[in-house]
Design a protein around this nucleic acid. Structure first.
Length: 473
RNA sequence: GGCCACGUGGCGGAGUGGUGACGCAGCGGACUGCAAAUCCGCGUACCCCGGUUCAAUUCCGGGCGUGGCCUCCA
C-alpha cells in the first residue's frame, strides 16, 4: 500500500518513497524549553507522532528514525531564568528552567499518547557540530564574519526562498525591520552571535576571538545532519516555521553540504485558534497543555489526554483548527462510547486496513475516524470487530486502557454506595415483576436523582430482564 | 504594503466536474409497561459575483470574510 504525503516544497501530494526503506528518517522541530507548552505546540507533536506510528507500520518499527529536538539555548530562556532565579548565577538558573520545562513537556505529551521519538537531541549538546557548519559555510563562500557574528549570505544561494515561495526582491520590498549595519544584505541571517557577559557562551568559530552562541536556525541543521544525515526523508513542523526558520535551515544545510535538497518532503501543520480568536496572552485565551489536562481553566473541566488527542485529530492536519470546549466535549463523548465497547475485547493483531489506507492518504484522520465509527457500530454486535476497533484505536494512540471514569476526569460525580444502588435496582426489578410500575418508576427517579442511570436488557436465552446501571455524571 | 492559506447542513468535518462521507445535536419509527440503551429511517450544505463546461460546491478570474508569514510564536 502506498503512502501519499503533501509536500510544501512542491505544493502537492506525492507518493512517499524513502531514500532507504530500511532507515526512514524524519525530523520535527521540537519545543524551546522556557515555559509550559501550549495547545498550539501540541498539534505538531500529535500529528507527527501519528505519522511516526504510520511509518513504523509501513516500514517496520526498527526501520524508522524520528528525531525531535529540544531547544535549550535561546534568549527567551535566558530572560526567563534571570526573572525566576535572580539570585543564582545565570547558567545555573538556565539549567533549572530548561530541565524543569523539559520534564513538564515530556509529562504533558505522554498524557497525549505521544510515543518518545527515536532520538531527542538538545541544542547545547551539538555546539561543536554547529560551529563546524559555520566554518564550512564560510569556507564555501556562503557566510561571512562581521563584528563577532557569523552571517549567512543569502545572495550566495540562487534559489533561496523556494520553500516559502518568495523571492529575495519580494522579501526586501516587504521588510519592515531595521537592518543591522554589519549585514551585507538585508535578508542575511545570524549563524553565530557574540554573547553578553553572563550569558551562555562557547568559544566562537571562524577565528572570532570573543565567545558567542548559536543563532536560532543553525541547531536544526546541525542536529538533523548528525542524527539523520545531510539528506533525509521528512522534515515537519508548524506552518509558521516555513519562513524564516525552515527556509534558513535549508539554506544552511544545502550550502554547507553542497546538496540539492535537505529533506525530500517538507510537511507543515495548520495553525490553531482558540474559540475563534488568535491565541495570545493579552486576549486571555492562552491555554497550555498542562492547564487543559490538570485544571478547569478551559471548558470548566480538566480533559483526559486521549480526549485532547482525539479533538486534535478530528481535523485534517493541514486545515486551520478552532480549539473549542465543544469539540472536547464531543471527543469525550466519542471516547466514552468506544471505551464501553472495547473494555473487554481482545485486541486484534493489526489495525483496520481501511483506516491505514485513509491515514496513508496524507494523514486523512477525519476519513479514518469515519471508518472507526463504522467499526464501533459492528463492535456492538461482534466481538471480533470490537477487537479490531481496539487495535485500531491503540494504533492511533487513542486508547491505552482508559475506563469511563478515567476519561471523565474531574467531571463532578456523585459518590455512590454500590450496595445501596444494587439494593434499589433489585427492589425496582421486583416491583416490575409485580407490575407495580408506579413503584418501579419511583425507584428509577430516586436513582436518577442520585446520578445513576439504568439500562434494561433481556437475556437472549432466558428472556429474563437484566438491569445494568452507571453513574451518569 | 508584499506573499500564502482557509470559507461545506444547527455544530464539527471529509470529499468530489455529474447518484448529498462520517460524528454530535434534532425529528420519525421499532423495541419497552413507560423510559434509557440499541436498531431502522429522515437533511433540496457547499461565502458572493462573473467565466470555462452539456454539467461547478469541485476548474479559472474578481470580490468579501477569517487567519498565517514578512519581527528567532507550532
Amino acid at each position: 500500500m502506498s503512502l501519499t504525503l503533501y509536500n510544501t516544497l512542491t505544493r502537492r501530494k506525492e507518493t512517499f518513497e524513502p531514500i532507504d526503506p530500511a532507515r526512514v528518517r524524519m525530523y520535527v522541530c521540537g519545543p524551546t524549553v522556557y515555559d509550559y507548552a501550549h495547545i498550539g505546540n501540541a498539534r505538531p507533536v500529535i500529528v507527527f507522532d501519528l505519522l511516526f506510528r504510520l511509518l513504523r507500520h509501513h516500514y517496520g518499527a526498527a526501520h524508522v528514525t524520528y528525531a525531535r529536538n529540544i531547544t535549550d539555548v535561546d534568549d527567551k530562556i535566558n530572560a526567563r531564568a534571570a526573572a525566576d532565579y535572580p539570585d543564582l548565577p545565570l547558567n545555573e538558573a538556565i539549567r533549572r528552567v530548561t530541565s524543569a520545562t523539559e520534564k513538564q513537556f515530556h509529562d504533558d505529551i505522554a498524557a497525549l499518547g505521544v510515543l518518545p521519538p527515536t532520538v531527542e537531541p538538545r541544542a547545547t549538546e551539538h555546539i561543536e557540530e554547529m560551529k563546524r557548519l559555520c566554518e564550512a559555510l564560510v569556507t564555501r563562500g556562503h557566510a561571512y564574519v562581521a563584528q563577532g557574528h557569523v552571517l549567512f549570505d543569502v545572495s550566495s544561494m540562487p534559489d533561496y526562498g523556494r520553500l516559502s515561495n518568495r523571492s529575495l526582491e519580494e522579501m526586501e520590498a516587504g521588510a519592515r525591520v531595521e537592518v543591522a549595519p554589519y549585514k551585507k544584505g538585508p535578508m542575511d541571517f545570524v549563524l553565530w552571535k557574540p554573547s553578553k557577559p553572563g550569558e551562555p557562551a562557547w568559544p566562537s568559530p571562524c577565528g572570532i576571538a570573543e565567545p558567542g552562541r548559536p543563532g536560532w536556525h543553525i541547531e536544526c541543521s546541525a542536529m538533523s545532519e548528525k542524527h539523520l544525515g545531510p539528506i533525509f526523508d521528512i522534515h515537519g513542523g508548524g506552518i509558521d516555521l516555513v519562513f524564516p526558520h525552515h527556509e534558513n535551515e535549508i539554506a544552511q544545510s544545502r550550502c554547507a553540504h553542497g546538496t540539492p535538497v535537505m529533506a525530500r518532503v517538507w510537511m507543515h501543520n495548520g495553525f490553531l485558534q482558540v474559540e475563534g480568536e488568535k491565541m495570545s496572552k493579552s486576549l486571555g485565551n492562552f491555554i497550555t497543555i498542562h492547564e487543559l489536562l490538570e485544571t478547569r481553566k478551559f471548558g470548566a473541566s480538566p480533559w483526559h489526554g486521549r480526549v485532547v488527542r482525539l479533538a486534535m485529530l478530528g481535523t485534517h492536519y493541514r486545515q486551520p483548527i478552532d480549539w473549542t470546549a465543544e469539540r472536547l466535549l464531543q471527543a469525550r463523548a466519542t471516547l466514552l462510547d468506544f471505551a464501553d465497547l472495547i473494555a473487554s475485547a481482545e485486541p486484534a493483531a493489526a489495525p483496520n486496513a481501511d483506516v491505514i489506507a485513509a491515514l496513508s492518504d496524507d494523514l486523512n484522520t477525519p476519513s479514518a475516524l469515519s471508518i472507526v465509527h463504522g467499526l464501533a457500530k459492528s463492535a456492538r454486535r461482534n466481538p471480533e470487530a470490537a477487537g479490531e476497533l481496539r487495535a485500531t484505536l491503540e494504533f492511533m494512540g487513542l486508547y491505552g486502557g482508559e475506563t469511563r471514569s478515567d476519561l471523565n476526569v474531574g467531571v463532578e460525580s456523585v459518590n455512590v454506595d454500590a450496595a445501596q444502588i444494587e439494593a434499589l435496582v433489585a427492589a425496582r426489578l421486583a416491583a416490575r415483576k409485580a407490575k407495580d410500575f408506579k413503584e418501579s418508576d419511583r425507584i428509577r427517579d430516586e436513582l436518577a436523582a442520585l446520578g445513576v442511570s439504568l439500562k434494561d436488557a433481556k437475556d437472549p436465552k432466558s428472556g429474563e430482564i437484566i438491569t445494568t446501571w452507571e453513574v451518569a455524571r
